[in-house]
Amino acid sequence: MMHDVLFYLFAAMTLAPALLLVCSRNTVNAAMLMIVSFIGAASLFALLQAYLLAVLQVMVYAGAVVVLFLFIIMLLDVGHEGRLRAALSKLVAPLAFFAALGCCSVLAILSGRGGEAPAGLEASPAASAESFGMLLFTKYQLAFELTGFLLLAAMVGVIFISRRAIPAGNRTEGKE
């Protein structure tokens, strides 16, 4: 019973900010709404007993990623968007597609079999960090190392992309 109530609370906490984000005109507000949505998703993880993933979600997404977004929003000073897209003709196709996708996925899930409570396991194996560590350093060793390399490559790439551009006089191509 408690689980049910918490589930609906956290589901609302995940979905409502996401909807508001899509409609918000202020980019800083959108970043703040994103934090709430990510914390809602982390709560859903905790409800599913994936505690390590819940902590990671809060630290990486609600922490690092949102801070990075806010930093860029303030660096570029693009906080306010002005009017949202108003042309109705441009709205019809995406909204129709969105509605169709949403209805289809919800129907597909509802018509499917399953959805009973998990059999046999009172405590999820994902509850302990140990089970993650065991898999990461045995079965997924290669993927783990490659992910580390990917982070290094991303870091070098970011430094390369965001370095100060060559002054306009030295550039060979024409100015826009």
Binding site: A41, G115, E122
Partner: peptide, 19 residues
Amino acid sequence: MLPVALNHYLIVAALLFCT
């Protein structure tokens, strides 16, 4: 035992994805 079923979570995921 969890009373909320798998479908509930999947619907939340589907709606979030669509949003």
